[in-house]
Design a binder for these strands. Structure first.
Length: 315
DNA sequence: ATGTCAGTCAGGGACTGA
């Protein structure tokens, strides 16, 4: 199963690109953020294109800002809109920043964490409270089912996730309270599967529109794919689809894509190496391939036939 | 250079948010 997350910065402005991307990338489940549409407008724009491609969807939006969606061709059950315990901004209101559903046996969340604006802004406190509420929701869900919590977290987990840490001193997205709030979320038992898979690679998911940030690769990794341990074990590949950020008329974010092997019947041990890693002792050659994969201009395709078992390692 | 976008309301350009 292929699951992706993408902040598309307006589903309406990105309509043609989104459909083209679905046809190219062939995701089974998609978490979208910043659709900037109400539910009715999303339906009018996307019903036909999505249903024809076999996707069902759940959209949660109220118009001008925010808006999240889940698309799935692997089932879409027990849809839940909004975040329990959402602190509200202002208090008492509820922005559409979360939608969840069960897809292919996994409880999937599409999340758009508040931006925070600046550490002094009331929006920053709202961001931290929102993350605390998210932690509560995921902690309550975690013991019961496989989980993937994906979306635009508006937090770079470490300094390795920003192009120049010095440039971000005093700015939101990198402060210790935000990172601590994110750790509290992952400590419910979730794994940042991209960083686990590529611990030493430079990987970004967002580049500001301004100042040639994308061509210069001045980016941040703020779009995360968090998986419970049982799902993390099934991860066969993870990459950022940088091709979707190229050219004009793009979002300022690129999709993050995760391929999962078929759900195992029992204990599967460590992550399965990619099929072409045979003969490798695991580390160097695989990592070299990995860097190339992340930087390539088109997404790697899934094998047309079921993944062959790699030969038994001699080491 | 806060250097670019997208949405809205407006009314052909301002603002807000990111």
């Amino acid at each position: 199963m292929r699951i992706a997350t993408w902040n598309i910065n307006s589903a309406k402005a990105r309509q043609a690109r989104l459909i083209e991307w679905l046809d190219r990338a062939q995701p089974d489940v998609v978490c979208l953020q910043e659709t900037k549409l109400d539910d009715q407008s999303f339906a009018e724009a996307f019903d036909e294109d999505l249903f024809r491609r076999g996707y069902r969807y759940a959209h949660h939006g109220d118009g001008r800002w925010n808006g999240v969606a889940l698309l799935s061709r692997e089932g879409l059950d027990d849809v839940e809109r909004g975040l329990a315990g959402d602190p509200g901004f202002p208090a008492g209101t509820h922005e559409p920043r979360a939608v969840a559903a069960t897809c292919g046996g996994i409880r999937v969340w599409s999340l758009y964490i508040p931006n925070g604006r600046t550490p002094e802004d009331p929006h920053y406190a709202y961001k931290l409270e929102w993350l605390a509420a998210l932690r509560g929701v995921l902690a309550a869900a975690a013991p019961h089912q496989p989980i993937m919590a994906c979306g635009d977290f508006n937090i770079a987990p470490t300094d390795a996730d920003v192009w120049d840490p010095a440039d971000f001193v005093g700015a939101t997205h990198v402060t210790e309270p935000e990172r601590a709030a994110l750790r509290a979320v992952t400590e419910t038992g979730l794994v940042d599967v991209l960083r686990t898979r590529w611990p030493d690679d430079v990987v970004y998911t967002y580049w500001d529109y301004r100042a040639l940030c994308f061509p210069k690769n001045m980016g941040m990794r703020i779009d995360l794919t968090l998986a419970s341990a049982d799902v993390a074990k099934r991860v066969a590949a993870v990459w950022v689809d940088r091709a979707a950020r190229k050219g004009t008329g793009t979002s300022d974010h690129a999709p993050v894509v995760v391929d999962l092997d078929t759900a195992p019947d029992g204990d599967v041990g460590p992550m399965v190496p990619p099929p072409s890693a045979k003969g490798s002792s695991g580390g160097g050659a695989q990592r070299g391939r990995a860097a190339a994969t992340i930087r390539r201009t088109s997404a790697p395709r899934p094998p047309a036939t079921p993944t062959p078992k790699p030969p038994a390692s001699t080491e």
